[in-house]
Design a protein around this nucleic acid. Structure first.
Length: 277
DNA sequence: AATTCACGCAACCGCCGGTCC
DNA sequence: GGGACCGGCGGTTGCGTGAAT
């Protein structure tokens, strides 16, 4: 017994959407908003399946779609994000306002993959010599984390006050507070990659601790990762319900495999959770 | 001018995970 | 607990268009 198809295919239009179909779908969306895609054909009279309607809306009709060529900055970001995330097109597109996963995917497949492929042929293997960034290891039971910075080791400690007000938290003796609650303190993904790729070229920024900020205190940014660096403590939205995003852990673990075989990002996460709960 | 080829992009397809009953 | 439903995602396809021959 096979899976039931998403809709009855007979009698449905396929292929390119007409202007009239677009208008009907846009009117429906304006009146009802998205969701209940399966109902859309019934309500609108469109001879399209719900999934097709959803795709058309998300990839083409949505009002906040950005038209036009991918800018050099966007291209640079796509390359960096793809390096970190792989083919996670929706995640990549999520960092590019107005761009869709389909657009990013197409751009990569038709242009960037070739561009990257040819540039890789010309480059040497020197980038493999240095790890992109260091994942700190927990070193004691009193909530201390020692960043692996050769020149100026940094001890990151969890304050008791913060621990009382959060599931777990890492504080630091660095210049900025952990998660001040302001978006200005949020580390963008671009900045994460900046850390990861170019940390060695900047002052002390090649050390990052990733902790999880699940606190309820007003001084703690909700729903965010905390990325702790020697010079700043920044939070990155993406953390949900006290769980770490698997993709970030996977990405870090994959990077760490090559240069820090003894470091297991998940073990580090678990040790922090165990130690602070 | 006609034909072929390559490319870009919109759309389709199947799978997967979350939710509901 | 398990099946059905639904939305989301990534891979793939195929059509339209412009360049090349």
């Amino acid at each position: 017994m096979g899976r039931r198809p998403c809709c009855v295919k007979e009698g449905l239009n396929k292929g390119a959407w007409t202007a009239e179909e677009d208008r009907m779908l846009a009117e429906y969306m304006e009146a009802h908003g998205d969701g209940k895609w399966r109902n859309v054909p019934n309500v609108t009279g469109l001879k399209r399946c719900g999934k097709s309607c959803r795709l058309r809306w998300l990839n083409y009709l949505r009002p906040d779609i950005k038209r036009g060529n991918i800018s050099p900055d966007e291209e640079d970001l796509i390359i960096r994000l793809h390096k970190l995330l792989g083919n996670r097109w929706s995640l990549i597109a999520g960092r590019l306002p107005g761009r869709t996963d389909n657009e990013v995917k197409n751009y990569w497949n038709t242009y960037l993959s070739k561009k990257i492929g040819s540039s890789n042929k010309n480059s040497t293997k020197k980038k493999q010599q240095q790890p992109p960034f260091h994942v700190a290891q927990q070193t004691s039971m009193n909530h201390q984390v020692l960043l692996e910075e050769e020149k100026s080791p940094l001890v990151v400690t969890a304050s008791e006050d913060l621990l009382k007000n959060s599931n777990y938290m890492l504080n630091t003796n660095c210049s900025q507070k952990v998660g001040s609650g302001s978006n200005e303190d949020c580390l963008t993904l671009e900045e994460i990659i900046e850390f990861a790729e170019f940390g060695g070229g900047k002052t002390q920024q090649n050390n990052i601790v990733v902790g999880a900020d699940a606190g309820s205190s007003s001084t703690v940014q909700h729903d965010s990762f905390c990325l702790l660096g020697p010079e700043s403590n920044l939070a990155w939205p993406g953390h949900k319900d006290g769980q770490w995003d698997d993709w970030l852990l996977d990405a870090m673990a994959a990077d760490a495999e090559d240069w820090l075989p003894d470091c297991d990002v998940r073990d580090f996460q678990n040790s922090v959770e165990t130690d602070t709960v």
